[in-house]
Design a protein around this nucleic acid. Structure first.
Lengths: 103, 103
DNA sequence: CTCATGCGTAAGCCTTGGCTTACAGTAAGT
DNA sequence: ACTTACTGTAAGCCAAGGCTTACGCATGAG
């Protein structure tokens, strides 16, 4: 239902870098931005997109804001991938059994 | 190694529509373009991108050209997804065991 | 050999979206 | 209260890329 948004969000390299930086554990925006070749506001924008895709969850800690990985977005992507895989395989087998590919 | 290309390619909705149309079996370019809201050359361009991402394979049949799904691209995407999943989960557990998240 | 069919490619247009700088807001410390 | 730290948002710029029209090429049919 939302795997398309997940794909769109993960397509950008910088955003993927932001996302992968959270793989090591929860971090603040400044910590994420440190080391990345873009400005901090850019990171904020990416985090917003990731959040809307259910890939990330945030929580305030003092004046800072801690982001961490949130699974649901990846679950949907994985579900789509698996479904696609199974369907394509089923149709392939169906055609292969008839002859070669139906012609 | 190329999961990034796979993500980029699959991010576009039209291109995904092209790809999903191949799920039902091999088809010619004209057959794919029929029913889609874009021109046939546009479909050709999408197919080229899909081919370069190892998501599709083509084969000439007379003056036509038959495209079909080719697995490797999806395999790489799935591998990345699984790896990411495992790593994130491992780090999450490591932090959870220490207390909550290490602060 | 000529014509028709089915594709791929080039050039150009135009929208999308990622980045930066500047600004506004909230919470903690003194 | 005032200042400092950390972040989200707005406006604007600019490159990336998806779409169309026009063209060129190969294969099969007659």
């Amino acid at each position: 239902m939302a795997y398309d948004k997940t794909l769109t969000v993960l397509a950008d390299p910088t955003r993927r870098a932001v996302f992968e930086r959270l793989k090591g554990g929860p971090r603040s925006v400044a910590e994420i931005a440190a080391g990345l070749p873009v400005s901090r506001p850019a990171v904020s924008q990416h985090l917003k997109a990731l959040k809307e895709a259910d890939l990330v969850r945030d929580e305030p800690r003092g004046t800072a804001r801690i982001y961490r990985i949130h699974a649901p977005g990846l679950v949907e992507l994985r579900a789509w991938l698996d479904g696609f895989w199974d369907e394509a395989l089923a149709n392939f087998k169906a055609h292969a059994e008839k002859d070669d590919d139906g012609r």
